[in-house]
């Protein structure tokens, strides 16, 4: 098992570093360009949600991003100490309904679920929250 770590301030301007960090790691792990794009976007969406909803755009907080690789598993663990969030409250949007009645937000988590093999939210002691994003490398593809 190997790990890589990045800490960023809770600012949207830092998201390009995150995408670069994750894309580089995913490339070295063996993902193709299409999968790298999906992983980077999913992590971007998760961090955007944290900056926006957990920290309310307050820039003095940190977001810790850890990449854990093990055999064919590529997992990104994003940790914050902002407002707790229950993803079960976010319904998967019905595309037809969303198109008929578009609104701001509500697509990010849905997109993360489409882009990754697994998306999990965990609440840790001391009010810490983690988002786990997992993608398997399809060997032979």
């Amino acid at each position: 098992m190997n790990t890589l770590n990045l800490r960023i301030e809770s600012k949207t301007e830092r998201l390009s570093y995150v995408r670069e960090f994750v894309s580089d790691a995913a490339k070295k792990f063996g993902f193709d360009d299409e999968s790298i794009g999906k992983i980077a976007l999913a992590v971007d969406e998760a961090c955007t949600n944290i900056i926006k909803h957990a920290y309310g755009f307050s820039p003095q907080h940190n977001i810790d991003i850890k990449i854990v690789t093990n055999k064919e598993i590529f997992e990104i663990i994003i940790r914050h100490q902002g407002k707790l969030f229950d993803p079960k409250l976010v319904k998967t949007p019905d595309l037809k309904d969303y198109i008929d009645h578009p609104r701001r937000g509500g697509l990010g988590i849905h997109l993360m679920r489409l882009l990754m093999d697994q998306v999990e939210y965990k609440i840790l002691p001391n009010n810490k929250c983690e988002v786990h994003l997992l993608k398997k490398l399809q060997v032979g593809k």
Binding site: L41, D44, E45, T48, Y98, I99, D100, H101, P102, R103, R104, G105, G106, L107, G108, H110, L111
Partner: peptide
């Protein structure tokens, strides 16, 4: 393009 961009495209389409 991220979910905000997708949302903006959908709004424009609608």
């Amino acid at each position: 393009l991220n979910s905000s961009g997708i949302g903006a495209l959908i709004t424009a389409h609608t």
